[in-house]
Amino acid sequence: MNDATRTGTDGASDLPVDTILRLAAQANAHKSWAATPDRLARTAPGRRAADARFLAQADGDPVRAESLRKAFYADLTAKSIRARRAKAGQRAGADA
């Protein structure tokens, strides 16, 4: 075993440290959301900040701000698709 892996508690599997940390972070995030009684209230500051950012970029024009928001999320979707395809290609190359 190298420095980048740790043996699981059952001793049967070696998991990369980044995988262990990611899983722990995911579990903590789920616990945090489970303890949140009002999700809308918790996320409201972030939504307000995003709205203000798009509105500022649009020089106060709400119609342009909505177009900027749609463009931002379309770009984010495209970036996600590219990342998933690249990851799938890496897995396919590792299996070969």
Rank of each mutant, 00 (worst) to 15 (best):
R53I: 01
T19A: 14
G89K: 11
L55Q: 02
S80T: 11
I20F: 01
D59W: 01
S67P: 00
R47S: 07
W33R: 13
D14R: 10
A50V: 08
D61A: 09
R53C: 02
A41S: 13
Q26S: 10
A4H: 13
W33H: 10
R85C: 08
A49G: 01
L68P: 05
T9A: 13
L15A: 05
R48A: 13
H30S: 05
A71E: 08
R64Q: 11
A4L: 12
G8F: 02
G46S: 11
R47Y: 04
T43S: 14
V17D: 06
R64P: 00
T36W: 03
R48C: 01
A58M: 00
R6C: 04
G93W: 06
A74T: 11
L76D: 08
D61C: 08
D14W: 03
A96Q: 14
G8R: 04
A4D: 07
G93E: 11
A50C: 00
A65L: 06
A74L: 14
S13W: 01
Y73E: 10
V63C: 01
Y73L: 12
A24N: 07
R82E: 14
S32M: 12
W33Q: 11
P37D: 15
G89Q: 10
G89S: 07
S32G: 02
T77G: 07
A12D: 02
L68F: 13
R91H: 07
G93D: 12
K79D: 12
A56D: 15
V17C: 02
R91N: 12
A27Q: 10
R91S: 14
P37R: 14
A34C: 04
P37C: 03
N2G: 15
D38I: 04
R69M: 07
D3T: 05
Q57M: 14
A83N: 06
P37V: 07
T5A: 04
A78V: 11
